[in-house]
Design a protein around this nucleic acid. Structure first.
Lengths: 206, 206, 206, 206
DNA sequence: TATGAATGAGAGTTCATTCAT
DNA sequence: TATGAATGAACTCTCATTCAT
């Protein structure tokens, strides 16, 4: 029942993702999205009724996708080691496949912090249990058993997510700082996962 | 030679920083900047000749400021421990004082990756020596001596900077994921520095 | 030969009458007409070929209907008393049954004065005699015989028609001027007819 | 302190009045208003912020102007004769001088009945006393004393206003019905006032 | 320096109308 | 006949920028 791969609607979505990634919400131009999709500009509004709504749909869909994956990992992790090995891989692989989404999410986070917050809360309220508390409780238990050195779930998240996300955004700056060109190919992705897993396991396991 | 505090020019700069931080380059409105600065809109163009130029000035100034600080640390660090202890503190303290700049830089990085690259290269070419090579050589030597576990300077940077930067951007998301409110007060900043230093020292020192 | 009740065509006509009445020609939306009629938008153009034509058809039909009734009265009136008693009733009853048409005609009169003029002239040229002159001659004769105090047919018309028409349009304003709610029910209609007949009989008969 | 006669703002107002009169709110085009005023289109929004607001301002100003005049008459009328002689003259002269306003008000009355109602109520609530009740009470008293034949204030209004207003809107139709051209010159205006005053005095005084 | 008014390009959006099925 | 998708022109409104004073 999902829209077919090359339907007008899907084409609009695809080019919108690129436009929003490259230019942010305000910089993205409806006419450009239409041109990219080889579609009449009016069709954007026919299918999505407004630029803002199109944006919302994109963000919502992608946030939902990540959250689902992360929830699965949380459910499957018996100990911090499991978690620290799985999380970076999921994040890095997801965003390397959807590199535009990383940019869009960052954009949104900067411009409209409450927006993603709302979406996340909204997705969570639909969940059968309260995932917000699950993670906090897990960490607390692990820390009490001496399985993790970092006791605060906030810092645990802040130590994992950015290390996984940032390479899809900040690499050009790193390139210029080091004066060398870096390709994000499969090899690099594997290295990055390896490095992050290493970092957080050695950094936060006893 | 610097513009006086509270001069029209300085007031424009200050409100522009906020506007750009909150809305990105495209979302920022000249009229809004003027209103925030209690200044006639035309003055923006009188002093900065264009919105784009105003943006450039802001980015340039702030990037330069960080780079100078980082270069000093690089020069002073005799071993990786020194570096890993000093770098997060510098980054986190700088951006906690200039929280708007963190957002602007992220925005710029996402929207216009080459822009910051150029600025960095430009600043570097004015330097008496080539800092790009200094860091790479340092890391290589340290790694050969077994002082660092991570051999690739790229990943070292990617392990340090994002962990320091992201809390000024992604905290709202973390809040909603954990379902708790987090204040970025002095205490939190100290904790964050502590956590990052801990992470990278344990994670990348032998 | 007439379209069947509740046929697609008739349903379009009905909702179009409402839309045009509420919003005028320019404010009426084809999509809204279609939605009201529970009909596909394209059918409007299938049956009526353009919005403007649909509008024309509606105006023409309704103007024709009134004119026929008025002509009958003119033919039957032996003296001004007959006329002054019959005319307001015909007008008021017609527009109370077709309240939307009153609005449409007023709209059209304001926006496109020549439009209705043309339609009227057109209907008249199809008539076997020249009704335009009939009324003028009637009035002149009556006035010469001292049967009417107002000698000018123009003012006679301007004294009768607006008093009959306006209550279907201006009542809300009257309500707010008097600060009371007024319902256009059967009783009100009867009162209105009575009041107008009284007014013009006492006002224009000797 | 009022805008100067030929200021940009005033020129916009003037052409807007014409555009709205000829085409109604929805048919009026901002570009056309600008062209008529020989003014940059953007200035309309600079001064009035939206087409709708421009419309509101015009309606408000003109309704206020009439109401003030009518209130004065109400205050000065010692008996129905005074009132019936003064009211038609005020209305007819006002709309003959502001012929566009008659059309706009009628338009608005048809399209958005509650709009003018609100404006009227709003103007009334600013008044020191309640004019809504003044008229009703006046009529009741006069009727009890046998000074008026029509007892209902609603019908009194409906007998006076439309007869005064309609000639500025419906004349073209009258022309085509009678097959003769009618000029609204000073002579015609005088005749019309005379005819209406005659009609309502003879029609509603004992 | 500072201001309010003005400009022109272009943004998002709407709408009558047409097309393919 | 009927439908959902498509089209292109036009519309309201915005915004960076400039002008006159």
């Amino acid at each position: 029942m999902k829209p077919q791969k090359n339907s007008t609607k899907q084409r609009i979505l695809n080019s919108a993702i690129q436009e929003f990634a490259e230019n942010g919400f305000w910089g993205a131009r409806a006419s450009q999205i239409a041109k990219r999709a080889s579609v009449n500009k009016a069709m954007i509004f026919y299918y999505f009724s407004s630029k803002e709504n199109l944006y919302r749909v994109i963000i919502q869909d992608s946030v939902k996708e990540i959250i689902i994956q992360v929830q699965k990992i949380l459910a499957d992790s018996k100990n911090p080691e499991d978690l620290f090995e799985a999380l970076p891989e999921v994040y890095i692989r997801f965003f390397s496949k959807n590199r535009f989404l990383a940019k869009i999410i960052i954009h949104d986070l900067v411009q409209n912090p409450e927006h993603i917050s709302k979406i996340v809360s909204q997705i969570f309220t639909q969940a059968p249990f309260k995932p917000q508390q699950v993670f906090t409780r897990m960490v607390r238990q692990w820390h009490q058993k001496g399985l993790v050195t970092e006791s605060d779930p906030v810092h645990i998240i802040l130590n994992i997510i950015p290390a996984s996300l940032f390479c899809f955004i900040g690499l050009p700056m790193v390139e210029s700082v080091l004066g060398q060109k870096i390709n994000i190919d499969d090899e690099f992705i594997d290295e990055r996962i390896h490095s992050v897993v290493n970092l957080i396991k050695r950094g936060m396991l006893p």
